[in-house]
Amino acid sequence: MLQNISILNQALDVSVLRHNTISNNLANMDTPNYKPQKVVFEEVLKGELANSSFEGTRSNTKHIPIGNSQARPFITEESVVTQNNGNGVDVDKEMSDLTENSIWYQTLSYQLSEEFNLLKTAIKSR
Rank of each mutant, 00 (worst) to 15 (best):
M1P: 06
M1E: 10
Q3Y: 04
I7P: 00
N9Y: 12
L12E: 07
L12A: 08
S15I: 05
V16F: 09
L17W: 00
H19K: 13
N20H: 02
S23F: 14
L26S: 02
N28H: 07
D30R: 13
P32S: 06
N33D: 11
N33G: 02
N33T: 02
Y34I: 01
K35I: 04
Q37E: 14
Q37L: 13
Q37I: 07
V40I: 13
V40H: 01
E42V: 01
E42S: 14
K46W: 03
G47P: 01
L49N: 08
L49I: 14
A50S: 14
N51R: 13
F54I: 10
F54A: 11
F54W: 11
F54Y: 15
E55C: 03
T57I: 15
T61P: 08
T61K: 04
H63G: 02
H63C: 01
P65Q: 09
P65I: 12
I66K: 08
N68F: 12
S69H: 10
Q70E: 11
P73T: 01
S79A: 15
T82E: 12
T82Y: 11
G86L: 13
N87R: 03
G88D: 03
D90G: 00
D90F: 04
M95W: 10
S96C: 09
L98F: 15
T99D: 00
E100G: 00
Y105P: 01
Q106L: 08
T107V: 15
L108Q: 10
Y110I: 13
Q111D: 00
L112E: 01
S113A: 11
E115M: 00
L118F: 11
L118V: 01
L118T: 09
L119T: 04
T121D: 07
R126C: 06
